[in-house]
Amino acid sequence: MPLTETAPTTEGHDASETAEESTAGERRALIGIAAVVLLVCGGLVTYGILDTEDDPKRPVLPTAEVTYEVRGEGTVEISYLAGGESGDATVETGVRPPWKKTVRVPLGKNPTVNIVLDAKGGMAGCTLAVRGEHVQRATASGAYGRATCTGELPTPVATEESTG
Rank of each mutant, 00 (worst) to 15 (best):
E85L: 12
E133T: 08
V113Y: 01
L128F: 00
G125N: 07
A119F: 08
I78G: 06
V116E: 11
E5A: 14
D118A: 01
V60F: 01
T10M: 08
T163F: 01
D54H: 10
M1W: 03
H13R: 15
E160T: 08
T159D: 01
E20F: 07
E11C: 13
S162Q: 06
G125R: 08
E133R: 13
V45P: 01
A89S: 14
T63Q: 09
A124E: 06
N110F: 00
E26H: 13
H13L: 12
G87M: 01
T159A: 00
L3M: 09
T18H: 09
A24Y: 06
E53I: 04
E161A: 12
E133Y: 05
E65C: 03
L128S: 08
N110P: 07
T52S: 14
R28F: 01
H13C: 07
E152Y: 04
S162T: 12
K100G: 08
S16L: 13
K109Q: 15
V45W: 05
G142Y: 00
L50N: 09
T163L: 10
V130R: 07
T155C: 00
A35W: 02
D51W: 03
A158Q: 12
R58S: 07
V130H: 02
G84R: 01
V113I: 14
A147Y: 01
V135Y: 03
A35N: 05
P59K: 07
C149P: 00
T18D: 11
T159G: 05
G87V: 02
E73K: 13
M123E: 14
D54Q: 12
R71V: 15
G43L: 07
A138V: 00
A124C: 03
D88L: 09
T127S: 15
Y68H: 09
T127E: 13
V116A: 06
T67I: 04
D14T: 02
K120A: 15
A124K: 05
V40N: 11
P97F: 04
R96C: 06
L30R: 14
